[in-house]
Structures are given as C-alpha cells and as structure tokens.
C-alpha cells in the first residue's frame, strides 16, 4: 500500500495537492496524455490568476506581518463521477492549475488513485528530494571549516 492510502484521507489529499503544486507543466501534460480514460469534467471556478498576500513573522517567529504578494493560479473542477478537485500553485500558469485540479479530483477515486500516485506524485516527490539534496550539498561545500591558529608559546 502506498503512503497516501495509509494516512488519513485529509493528509493524503494534502500531500497530493502539495506535490501537484510543484509539478511542472510538461509533467502534468504528459500524465494527462498518458491517461487512458480522460474523464469529462466541468469547471466550477477558474482557471484564474490572482494574488495571495505572503506573511512573515516579526523577528522570524513573532507576530505576523504582510511581506508582499505572490501570483497564484487556481482552478476547481468537477469530474464525471462527481468528485471535486482543486488546483492551487504559485505563478500564472492557469492550464497547470487546471490539470492539477483534475488530478486532485482523480486521486479521490480508487480507480485512478494508483495512476496519479505513480505517474505524478511519486515522481515529483523523488525529483523534489533530489533537488533539495543537490542544493543542500552545493551549499554544504561552501561551509567554513575554521582552523585554530595557536599563537605564542606556553
């Protein structure tokens, strides 16, 4: 059993949506094309681009303050079996938000969940982990190793 099915429906869905927000447009398009039975669907909202005000915390951990906005695109779809999917992601790519919403809807059906997991979620998770590791190792190479210089005689 995969991770998403073991966890509660809510955390499983959150994990899926979190990962879909990181999917690239080509990844989403490819998975959509690879789907045998692309379901009929209607848009309930969007796809549309808007703003989300990003908050920081005073001193890093204190009271919230408004740092500045970011562009966000989102979409909500209803697929043939009635499931409703939401897609939210940074940036202005509305098609990617629409595809993410479709996969969020599909991931709610037992029939399509394994496909979404295999074709998208697992891959994005792997790529993300690799990217993070690469960045971490690049940064670690710039870590300062201090040498203690002994001065004078004892």
């Amino acid at each position: 059993m995969n991770q998403a099915l073991q966890s509660s429906p809510e955390t499983g869905r959150k994990r899926g949506m979190d990962l879909l927000s990181r999917a690239t447009r080509p990844e989403l398009e490819a998975a959509w094309q690879a789907l045998d039975d692309r379901p009929a669907h209607e848009m309930l909202r969007g796809p549309e681009t808007g703003l989300v005000m990003v908050r920081g915390r005073i001193g890093g951990g204190g009271a919230p303050f408004n740092l500045g906005e970011t562009t966000v695109s989102r979409a909500t779809v209803r697929v043939a079996d009635g499931a409703i999917g939401h897609g939210y992601r940074l940036g202005t790519d509305r098609r990617a938000a629409e595809l993410a919403a479709l996969f969020d809807a599909l991931a709610q059906s037992e029939q399509h969940q394994p496909f979404v997991e295999e074709a998208l979620l697992a891959r994005i998770e792997k790529r993300q982990a690799e990217d993070a590791m690469q960045r971490e190792n690049e940064t670690a190479a710039t870590k300062v190793d201090f040498f203690t210089m002994v001065r004078g005689e004892d």
């Binding site: 808007g50 005000m53 908050r55 920081g56 890093g60 951990g61």
Partner: peptide, 23 residues
Amino acid sequence: YRTTLPRFGTSLPIETGRMQVER
C-alpha cells in the same frame, strides 16, 4: 499589474526557521 488581479487571501506566515538554506 498587481492592481489588475483579485486577491484570493493571505498565506500562513512563512517559517524562516524551516528554510531550505542556501546561505
């Protein structure tokens, strides 16, 4: 440009303590 867009809402405060640090 930003004035042409609707605002969807406000994010949770970003957690700089959990940053994926590059410097």
